[in-house]
């Protein structure tokens, strides 16, 4: 094994262990919000996409219907498809390997793979980051789930605020350009306005879809103006 491969593996292990520990928070919040240990672990084992898992639990905890929660979580998972598109050419996997690789497509494994110089390094970074996070995330989910059962009420220990902080931490690095900031503000305003007049969970879906539509409109306007200037 050459040094560049060894360095990639070490980086992947470090990132994976760090990120995997958040599984502790997910597990604790999930069972404290009313999911069973089995349901909590099933989400981490088979859905394996942190933001969507937090979204599902967050909506359920705030009194939303499980199906509304599932719809929110699934829509949020759509970004993984676009990660897969970028990865497809690098990984070139077929058959059962493709089925397995698909499961490991998450924010961190994608970022690590796309940051490499050639397809071979990309593959190594993707596999090692994905597998390390998968193992850590699931172990920590189980530990957290058992702890959450003991805690009982998510308001104790401020776990409900930790969920909000988790979403904030996930959206923060994406607020780099003006369009993203406008979308974020619109989405917050729509969601807050809808809370008193709709069922829990519904404001997230309407605000999310509404803000995406506004963003598309905004983009089109800018492109139209740029075209008019020429």
């Amino acid at each position: 094994m050459d040094t560049s491969q060894r360095r990639i593996i070490l980086d992947s292990l470090g990132l994976g262990i760090g990120v995997g520990t958040y599984g502790l928070t997910f597990g604790a919040i999930a069972t404290a919000s009313g999911l069973s240990v089995l349901q909590t672990c099933a989400l981490s084992l088979f859905a394996f996409t942190g933001a969507s898992q937090f979204a599902f639990v967050g909506v359920v905890a705030s009194g939303g219907a499980p199906l509304t929660a599932a719809l929110t979580a699934t829509l949020l998972g759509a970004r993984n498809m676009f990660y897969s598109i970028s990865l497809a050419a690098l990984l070139r996997v077929r058959g059962w390997r493709r089925l397995a690789a698909a499961h490991l497509v998450i924010d961190e494994s994608t970022a690590m793979a796309l940051g490499q110089k050639n397809p071979r390094d990309a593959k190594t970074a993707f596999m090692w980051t994905g597998v390390t996070i998968f193992v850590m995330w699931n172990l920590m989910t189980l530990l957290g789930a058992l702890a959450g059962n003991a805690i009982g009420d998510p308001k104790l220990l401020g776990l409900d605020a930790a969920v909000a902080a988790a979403f904030l931490g996930l959206v923060w690095p994406r607020l780099t350009d003006r369009l993203a900031q406008i979308i974020a503000v619109c989405s917050v305003l729509i969601a807050v306005a809808l809370v008193p007049i709709s069922t829990p969970g519904v404001p997230i879906i309407i605000a999310g879809c509404g803000a995406v539509a506004l963003g598309l409109l905004w983009k089109r306007l800018i492109e139209h103006n740029a075209g008019a200037d020429d």
């Binding site: 967050g58 909000a164 959206v171 989405s187 605000a207 963003g215």
Partner: peptide, 28 residues
């Protein structure tokens, strides 16, 4: 499709932050 995909995470995560911070059931 690509434009929508780029917008989805910001749009949904922001709504989740808002609701998780200010909503208690259906009251603000």
């Amino acid at each position: 499709t690509l434009a929508i995909a780029a917008l989805i995470p910001v749009a949904f995560l922001s709504a989740l932050v808002a609701v998780q911070t200010f909503a208690d059931g259906t009251t603000l």
